[in-house]
Design a protein around this nucleic acid. Structure first.
Lengths: 222, 222
DNA sequence: TAAAAAATTTAGACTAGTCTAAAAAAAAAT
DNA sequence: ATTTTTTTTTAGACTAGTCTAAATTTTTTA
């Protein structure tokens, strides 16, 4: 079965809302907000997707992906993230420039293409923002990272991802010299406003707002 | 101005029909045949494209691309052929497998992407079938090749392209060991059925029907 | 050069996806 | 336990792109 562009975007939206908030049931309004359209339009589409067995839908009760729907959504995520790796690693795009292009490329329909792209890129496990790339069977590498804002003082950590994917935030990190794989040690936290003083790569001293730190994912390294 | 998928396909169709038959004016029926849809649908779309100044259209009189329309069409051809190079050179697709995927990729909208892809591929001048890739300004490398069927006996030629792009024909050539850049010398032509006896790369002797030879483009080398 | 054939356009209908406005159901608050 | 608010759905309309059937224009042919 071949889905339209639009249908694929609805499935992806349902998947990522559920994923982000650890929900099974996703509401009509959440979807319409995520897709920037009206709730009435969402209702129409939900009926169509339910008809085709991609979702379970009970009027007024929200919606949940079926196995078929989940599989489809994960495949789109896989494609999106593989293309992002391609754009950054091979074409030298910056990590804040790739989202919109990958948003288009993720709808290209060819299983052979995805698998050959995967091989060409060396079967990467993470995209340029540190998000895990599901394998061909839809399995995700579970991430056990925490927000930098949750890390105890004087602890050494490695940057593994971000939770805010906006170009604005990504550029801010780049400009500060922070990227995936960098080492960070929290030197102190201001009591009044939670401003963090950090040491980057055992070298540069930087200040980070609590908000920024809460959107940086890290893993503890001894 | 951003065109829909469908509008882009119409412009590409008008361009390639005109190109193939060296026509300026293209008829409604030619387009409908090329796109496998009905003439009535074509008429509707022609009105829309004329409205947007991509074509000059006079009812019953056929249609011609404006400069704006030509520029758009050539850009789609450029994208299509660059993606074909990517698929063959980087992802190891065969030359008979890439058309349908490139047909999708050609509609991805990002000037920066095309130019970075072009650089990544080493600014190729030809696609995997030998067709010229227009440069960023829409200029084509003029091809001065002729069909193998037109070449005089005992002449040395190099394969530079094909005029039949069907997987069937391309596979037939691959199976015969014929690809771009190969050397061919016509040893004899049968008077009765024009069957060609050729020597491939100064090595293998092969037989080619007149039909096959008429779809192989070559350049004379001494 | 008038009749027949072919090509093209118009008219009207259909689907996918969207919208606004109104109705209905569920949740929250008094 | 009603009333109010919020959420969701229904009804009806719009656009892009398609179709069939009928009408019109152009071309061909006798």
């Amino acid at each position: 079965m071949v889905l339209s562009f639009t249908e694929e975007n609805y499935l992806k939206a349902i998947f990522s809302i559920g994923h982000a908030y650890h929900l099974n049931e996703v509401s009509t309004n959440q979807i319409s907000e995520h897709l920037n359209n009206k709730a009435a339009s969402v209702t129409d589409m939900l009926k169509r997707l339910a008809e085709k067995k991609y979702i379970d839908y009970k009027p007024y009760k929200g919606v949940r992906l079926t196995d078929k729907g989940k599989k489809t959504a994960v495949k789109i995520v896989r494609k999106h993230r593989l293309w992002e790796v391609f754009l950054v690693e091979k074409l030298n795009f910056k990590w804040d420039e790739v989202h919109d292009i990958a948003e288009q490329l993720e709808h290209i329909n060819s299983d052979e293409l995805i698998e050959k792209l995967d091989v060409f890129l060396g079967k990467p496990k993470h995209d340029p923002h540190g998000d895990p790339i599901p394998d061909v069977n839809g399995k995700f590498n579970v991430q056990k990272s925490v927000a930098l804002s949750q890390v105890k003082i004087k602890q050494n950590v490695v940057v593994t991802g971000v939770t805010d994917h906006s170009p604005h935030f990504l550029q801010y990190l780049s400009n500060s010299g922070i990227g995936l794989g960098d080492f960070i040690r929290i030197e102190s936290v201001n009591e009044y406003d939670s401003l963090l003083t950090i040491k980057l790569n055992k070298n540069k001293t930087l200040f980070l707002s609590h908000k920024a730190a809460s959107n940086i994912l890290v893993e503890v390294r001894s």
